[in-house]
């Protein structure tokens, strides 16, 4: 679930690790230990789904930015499709009960 959220957070952009955490903090109902994000990013990087670039920062030392690789994009597409299927299925059950 967290991998899914992280990959979506950095889709189409590149984000600093701390900013990814802040983005996820903003998702209501998602309770996480913030430290969990970094090992996941490290694993995703090792598996080739994200890559990092170091950029200078005006606020201090250089920062590491994460962005999706081509493999990452493809995997995320699959995850999003799967998520949509689950969501649609769940929504239909909820609607049934509301009737």
């Amino acid at each position: 679930m967290l991998e899914f959220c992280i990959l979506n957070a950095i889709r189409g952009t590149s984000l600093y690790g701390y900013d990814i955490v802040r983005t996820l903090r903003g998702i209501e109902g998602l309770v996480i230990s913030e430290g969990t994000i970094y090992p996941i990013l490290s694993r995703l990087k090792r598996e080739g789904f994200v890559k990092t670039t170091i950029r200078e920062s005006s606020e201090g030392p250089a920062r590491k930015y994460y962005e999706l690789t081509k493999d990452g994009e493809e995997m995320l597409d699959e995850m999003n499709s799967y998520w949509q299927v689950i969501k649609d299925g769940t929504d239909s059950i909820i609607k049934e009960h509301k009737k």
Binding site: G17, G35, Y38, S42, K64
Partner: peptide
């Protein structure tokens, strides 16, 4: 790498 990320996060 993770330790550096964690330290940056704390900072």
């Amino acid at each position: 790498e993770i330790e550096r990320d964690i330290c940056e996060h704390i900072e």
